[in-house]
Write a protein that binds this DNA or RNA. Structure first.
Length: 299
DNA sequence: TGCCAGGCTTCAC
DNA sequence: GTGAAGCATGGC
């Protein structure tokens, strides 16, 4: 039994969420009246549309609680926006620009594989590879609207040989994914343990696995475990830190840029206890959207 | 052709 | 412990 529920939600923008680079299976529905997106997470599917603060969820009735949790509807994001100090003009502008972003509560396993894939890839390329994995190894599901492929389980994905993964053009990431699948199937990577861990413990645990470094582990923590103190530093965030937060004297000093970025995150963003990851998403989205205005690199 | 993309592992020092 | 090199692929 499918249903349509409309809710009034503040600080929610479907378009911004879809473009925020945290999810890769959320796509605009062509020809829809209001901005509408098809969203797939794990083996769940919904159509979500928005008109002003009215957000409508089209899904099977029993799935509604899943999507309420997925979009983190219980959290007051206005509180985070209000906590940004006026003296940080860049952050003020970024937060105002992306004030409808939410940190999605996504599937842990899907986040691990997706962000291993994300290394040195553009967002459109990541989407294409994730979709290829789902189509090739995921279970086909008849939704209330159409057919789609669920994200493959560890067991399903582990059926792929290294050669098959390489054939999907995963490049050097293929061997990482193969090993992580083996570890997950053998219980070495215990997906049930991670949700009960704190941020530091989860980071340390995730980084033990082949192909998961600090940035990927942070993304998994933020988007798969809802550890919203996680602050992933990728090439875009690094660019912002060095341009907006590093005085010239520190740029010319002989301190390696990676170390400087660590210090800049600590000095400028550690104050946002309990929502640093939200702040990170604001600046990531802002930077990418502004870059997209001047080039076609942004999807 | 060269650079860049939600980086990581390996290796030399 | 640290920094550079090498890694696959596609888009611009």
């Amino acid at each position: 039994m499918d249903t349509r529920i409309t809710k009034q939600i503040q600080n929610f923008n479907l378009y911004q969420i879809a473009k925020s680079g945290q999810c890769f299976r959320m796509s605009p529905v062509p020809g829809s009246e209001n901005p509408a997106c098809s969203v797939i997470s794990g083996s769940h599917h919904a159509i979500v549309s928005q008109e002003g603060s009215a957000v409508s969820f089209f899904c099977e009735e029993k799935e509604l609680p899943f999507w309420e949790r997925y979009f983190d509807l219980e959290t007051d994001y206005g509180r985070f926006l209000a906590a940004i100090p006026g003296e940080d003009a860049y952050l003020q502008a970024a937060a105002a620009f992306g004030s409808g972003i939410r940190i999605l509560r996504q599937d842990l396993w899907e986040m691990i594989i997706t962000f291993v894939i994300s290394q040195q890839k553009s967002i459109p390329a990541i989407k294409a590879l994730v979709e290829a994995l789902c189509t090739r190894y995921g279970t086909q599901i008849e939704s209330f609207v159409y057919r789609f492929y669920a994200f493959p389980s560890p067991e399903q994905l582990n059926r792929a040989s290294l050669e098959e993964l390489q054939a999907l053009k995963l490049g050097y990431r293929a061997k990482y994914i193969k090993k992580i699948c083996e570890d997950a199937c053998e219980g070495l990577l215990d997906l049930n343990r991670l949700p009960s861990m704190g941020y530091e413990e989860a980071m340390e645990y995730l980084m033990r696995f082949y192909g998961i470094g600090r940035k990927v582990a942070n993304c998994v923590c933020l988007f798969g475990l809802h550890q919203i103190d996680a602050f992933p530093v990728d090439t875009w965030i690094r660019k912002i830190l060095l341009r907006e937060y590093a005085p010239k004297s520190r740029l010319t000093a002989s301190v390696p840029k990676t170390r400087l970025c660590d210090a800049l995150v600590e000095e400028n963003f550690s104050r946002y206890v309990g929502f640093a990851g939200v702040i990170q998403q604001y600046i990531f989205y802002y930077e990418r959207q502004l870059a997209g205005r001047y080039s076609k690199t942004s999807d």
